[in-house]
């Protein structure tokens, strides 16, 4: 399969999109908790210092300050590492943002184990589950720079409580620059009829590679970028799964993220053969690609499981 071109990390696209927003929308304010050089919110700080607030290493304080700004009519975007942001400020997200429906966008960079050498304390593998645990929260994982940029703009246009996962490494380019995406609409990035490979984040590129392998055997896998876990695009899910009757969900996260959301939905609305490729625990320090291989997030794992799911399609009881 031809390698996809590499683009910018989604966190870089986030920083650039904030600068664009800063130029057009005076209500946008940006907060960070001393990681702006990593989350890339420093780009906004450089252009709009009067609307940038480095709160210091105090995530709970940052989340609630952002909520206070939103209550006063501002459009706050607050960023830190995903692991620190959502774990340390979870109560503030719950009581100051989710429950009173105060529109703040939280951007957690360095999601997943592709953080690499920094190790498990810096790797968020629970962040999507925590975001999903909060009613009223939009939870989204832009797959590449094109998606990240457009989602930031869409959120600023229509502010809602939101958790957006961003990633550290450069990512494969999935979408052409001219492509129009919708935060609330999943994308079919490769059509097929035998199985639906439902992925988010860097697993989309791996699912595409696996689909290319399957195609050599005449198996047509449909690949879906289900970037937004809530609100769930049920229409696209239904169209795909009712056609293929088999799904493999792929995420760089514990199974409490995209896997759970799709399984729950499928059981209730479109029961099909399903399986999952996800993390099962904490990783370690190593280069990102070595970690993805060791912890099972590979093209090969997707390829093998996809074939197994297709075989099991018509069996009522799957076994284990």
């Amino acid at each position: 399969m031809p390698d996809l071109p590499m683009g910018k990390a989604t966190r870089v696209a986030y920083g650039e999109a904030l600068v664009e927003l800063g130029r057009t929308d005076p209500a946008v304010v940006v907060l960070d908790a001393d990681l702006s050089k990593s989350t890339q919110s420093h780009m906004f700080a450089k252009h709009f210092p009067e609307r940038f607030f480095n709160i210091g290493i105090a995530e709970a304080n940052m989340a609630a300050i952002a909520a206070g700004m939103a209550l006063a009519g501002k459009k706050p975007f607050a960023s830190s590492f995903a692991s620190f942001l959502i774990c340390k400020a979870f109560d503030q997200m719950r009581v100051n943002v989710a429950y009173p429906e105060v529109p703040v966008v939280f951007a957690g960079s360095h999601g997943g184990i592709s953080v690499g050498e920094d190790g498990p304390s810096q790797m968020a593998i629970e962040d999507l589950a925590l975001g999903l645990a909060l009613p009223n929260f939009t939870v989204t994982v832009p797959v590449d720079e094109v998606a990240a940029r457009q989602f930031v703009h869409q959120l600023a246009h229509r502010m809602v409580p939101c958790y957006m996962r961003l990633c550290r490494p450069a990512t494969s380019v999935i979408y052409d620059k001219g492509r129009t995406l919708d935060l609330r609409r999943a994308e079919i990035v490769r059509p097929g009829r035998h199985i639906s490979l439902i992925a988010c984040g860097l697993m989309v590129a791996k699912a595409l590679a696996a689909a290319a392998e399957l195609a050599k055997e005449g198996l047509e896998a449909e690949v879906m970028d289900l970037h937004t876990l809530r609100p769930l695009d049920e229409e696209t899910l239904f169209r795909s799964l009712s056609k293929t009757r088999a799904g493999l969900v792929c995420e760089e996260h514990l199974p409490s993220g995209l896997s759970s959301i799709v399984a729950l939905w499928s059981v209730a609305h479109c029961p099909v053969a399903l399986d999952f490729v996800h993390l099962s625990g904490y990783a370690e320090s190593a280069p990102p690609d070595a970690l993805l291989a060791k912890y099972g997030l590979t093209v090969e794992a997707i390829y093998k499981k996809a074939k197994a799911v297709m075989l099991k399609k018509d069996q009522r009881c799957m076994g284990f």
Partner: peptide, 12 residues
């Protein structure tokens, strides 16, 4: 949480 919320409102 209130003091942080207040800071946000005061800055706004």
């Amino acid at each position: 949480q209130g003091l942080s919320l207040g800071i946000g409102m005061a800055i706004a």
